[in-house]
């Protein structure tokens, strides 16, 4: 039954990359929340969420992004989302996340966007 979910974290060029794998719903969202919380508590406010292996997301998963985005932006960081498959992408789109979050093609692009923001003084 497809209800597995995992998050793996790494650091690239001073940016935290959280790779999501599986199905993100009301059952698995706490694991994602814990992973982001850990980064934010460590003062890591520049976060890339890699969705390449994320097969499904419901509003419970979207809620995790919503909980933390203001906090990390206020601290000068951001949560950038990358490598979203179409099935997940349309859920982001339906709720208007495309205009609220920066969603890019892959991890290098997301990391580069942080460098770009810094160059602009953001």
């Amino acid at each position: 039954m497809p209800n597995s979910f995992s998050v793996s974290g790494s650091r690239q060029e001073g940016i935290s990359v959280l790779a999501l794998d599986g199905f993100l719903d009301a059952h698995t969202a706490p694991a994602f929340e814990e992973a982001i919380e850990k980064e934010v508590s460590a003062g890591h406010n520049r976060i890339v969420v890699d969705c390449a292996r994320l097969a499904y997301i419901s509003s419970a998963g979207l809620g995790v992004f919503m909980t933390f985005i203001e906090e990390v932006r206020e601290a000068g960081g951001d949560i950038k989302i990358c490598a979203v498959i179409p099935k997940v992408g349309q859920v982001f789109e339906i709720l208007g996340f495309n205009s609220l979050f920066e969603i890019v093609g892959d991890i290098p692009q997301a990391v580069a966007r942080f460098a770009h923001s810094r160059a602009e003084g953001g």
Partner: peptide, 10 residues
Amino acid sequence: RKSGGLGMRM
């Protein structure tokens, strides 16, 4: 900073 409230809208 609310995480809920999207289900019914969805």
